[in-house]
Design a protein around this nucleic acid. Structure first.
Lengths: 373, 373
DNA sequence: AACCGCTTTGTCATCGATGTCAAGCCATCG
DNA sequence: CGATGGCTTGACATCGATGACAAAGCGGTT
């Protein structure tokens, strides 16, 4: 079997030094067209391919970006990963993905370290851990972009969706359609995203002069099955909600089938996160849609700029979230008259979007959502 | 800022040689408890972390597996990736994912090469390209496990689902429920998976003594929107089908909303690939479910065994596909009497599975499905 | 002819770890 | 007491590329 072909083999065949071959491979300008051709011929003849591990060792970083998410089985993170991967490919970088799982957020640091020791050029992290001080030491030079929420105890680049404002928008949307008993369905409260969305929900209630009724807040549902149970309890209460704000996809995947199975499609629903088939149910499900592709690409581009300018100040990029009205969020409460009770029949055609639109906005203040905690 | 900490720094502090530190790091038995403790103390004190790129260069391979799929945005591949990533993590390996996209299958070779030059220990590839002779040269030592279909022009490990048998099962299921006009909805025919499934469909028809009616075969729909159009044409035909076998998820995501929007839920449907909400529609959608997690883990485990035994003969692992009857596939054609017209109300409870079950089976004959081409 | 400056090419060391092989050390045994 | 053998430890080369620097080549100037 032929041995592995190296730079030196090419050099020998082309009767030049290894360094010259390296120059040709790296498109260095200081090579005569003649020798360049000779070297390229030798490269083709031997089928030489540079060993990127050796290059990485020499230059001190691999042309790889690391990506840390909760779970690739979650379509949100899958599409985010897809966007990151495409952006990276365009820049000639590979992507290493690792998932933390939703059982032990502490694993995050282990996973991050395992990528750092592989000398990744940069990291994109959807934070799960409570604290990120473990990344704060003086020897840590690898740039990190956080997505979805800010790290605790660390100033760094980040790409965020405006969770609080979006949740407020969704809740206000339901209130504006006449509901007064609006429930909140969410995951673990130790997840800051859940906390922000709950805060937005409460802010909207307060703006309407409604005191929060804690019996309408159901949190802690980590799986669709648990969300289903939580929703069952809400509906069985003496004064059940007429509308439910489901604060993430897992909750919606528990809630929506339950309502349809029970024939309770009179309950208004707005879901944070879009999901497959959400627009083909009757009524179609109104959602807050924060596009994972947009977030993923924004994070990748933020990281690339950071690689080009390591010393610029940390930046937070805000990605807008739109409300896609499809029917379920525009239902009126029982006994309510007037207004447009209109439920679009084929909602694919007449989507309406409210809320922030257009390009992501950038700010150098790294603690945009700090006040909400 | 503190410099990067290397093996030598630890060696200096512990007053031993670099090699001894290496031995401690790699749990080599030939180290005195005393020196081991001294070295470990120094490691902890300096916060030393071995540079895996350097190790990879030295040992000639990175502790990384490469994964090549069509698209991470496709939930099937996302879940497959998730399973591979978990299996790899358990073995201390990282995963580099790259997607080829469905536009240019030729890109596959570029992507694969880009992983090979990074010295991945092994590859898992869901093949898109027509030919894989580009992998056949003598210098190619990196093991590759193919998933979903066999490579062309190359003998290699593979993990397959029995597409032909599964498609035959699905079609037979519809025929057994009394249908005589069963349509086939599929993607590009240049995709061998589509070809195998079409062959299974035809075989089931033939077994029932039905000549294939080519007007019932709609292929070429690459997106859900195209599948929707193709399905519209099928339904508008002079002799429309009473049942449709949708041969992949994209097709189903076009077909099913169309049927629901048109109020044509009388048309029987079996879908290859499960999808979100498929079980909460009325009627719930009967699917062929080949679990991407099972395939991903089988592929990873096949690869790990290959890493342990580089010279064993190539193996093909077959992963079973089950039919999940939920209602839509058990509808009877118009005018048909008798039999159990029963449609399960809450199909989550009474799933019925037919077809092969249990563990994946292994064979060393590498061309299990060759005859079907 | 000698010199300058510029480009092209080469030499050598280096990135950080590990494989090879040998030296050092101690215990055991003839 | 010296030889033998096992175990621990270290010196050195090496994986394959690239950075720093130097030498060689070449044309133009005075």
């Amino acid at each position: 079997m032929r041995e592995r072909v190296t730079l030196r083999d090419v050099a020998r065949l082309a009767a030049v030094s290894a360094k010259t071959v390296s120059r040709v491979v790296n498109d260095d300008a200081h090579v005569t067209p003649g020798t360049r051709a000779r070297v390229q011929k030798a490269i083709a003849e031997l089928g030489f391919q540079p060993n990127l591990v050796a290059r990485s060792l020499r230059v001190g970083r691999a042309d790889v970006v690391g990506l840390v998410v909760e779970s690739l089985a979650d379509p949100f993170f899958a599409r985010l990963t897809s966007a990151v991967e495409q952006a990276a490919y365009e820049r000639g970088l590979a992507v290493m993905v690792s998932s933390v799982g939703n059982q032990e957020p502490e694993r995050e640091s282990v996973i991050v370290e395992s990528l750092l020791v592989r000398q990744v050029a940069g990291l994109i992290v959807a934070p799960m851990a409570q604290s990120h001080t473990y990344l704060a030491g003086p020897g840590r030079r690898t740039p990190i972009v956080f997505v979805d929420r800010l790290p605790e105890g660390l100033v760094s680049d980040a790409v965020l969706v405006d969770d609080l404002a979006a949740a407020e928008t969704a809740t206000r949307h339901l209130l504006d359609h006449g509901h007064r008993r609006v429930a909140f369905l969410g995951s673990e409260l130790r997840n800051p995203t859940t906390r922000l969305r709950l805060a937005g929900y409460r802010r909207a209630l307060a703006a309407h002069g409604l005191a929060g009724d804690e019996s309408l807040v159901a949190v802690g549902a980590g799986t669709a099955a648990e969300a289903r149970e939580a929703a069952e309890l809400l509906l069985a209460a003496p004064q059940p909600p007429t509308a439910i704000f489901s604060s993430n996809m897992r909750c919606s995947l528990g809630l929506v089938p339950l309502l349809h199975g029970r024939g309770r499609t009179d309950v208004a629903v707005v879901s944070f996160d879009d999901f497959a088939m959400a627009d083909s149910l009757v009524p179609a499900v109104t959602v807050l849609d924060h596009d994972p592709e947009v977030i993923g690409r924004a994070a990748a581009e933020r990281l690339f700029r950071r690689l080009d300018e390591p010393d610029a100040p940390a930046e937070t990029v805000m990605v807008p979230v739109g409300l896609v009205a499809r029917g379920s969020g525009e239902l009126r409460p029982p006994g309510h008259e007037g207004g447009d009770g209109h439920v679009p029949q084929d909602s694919l055609q007449d989507r309406v979007r409210h809320g922030a639109e257009g390009r992501a906005s950038t700010m150098t203040t790294p603690h945009a959502q700090e006040g909400a905690r």
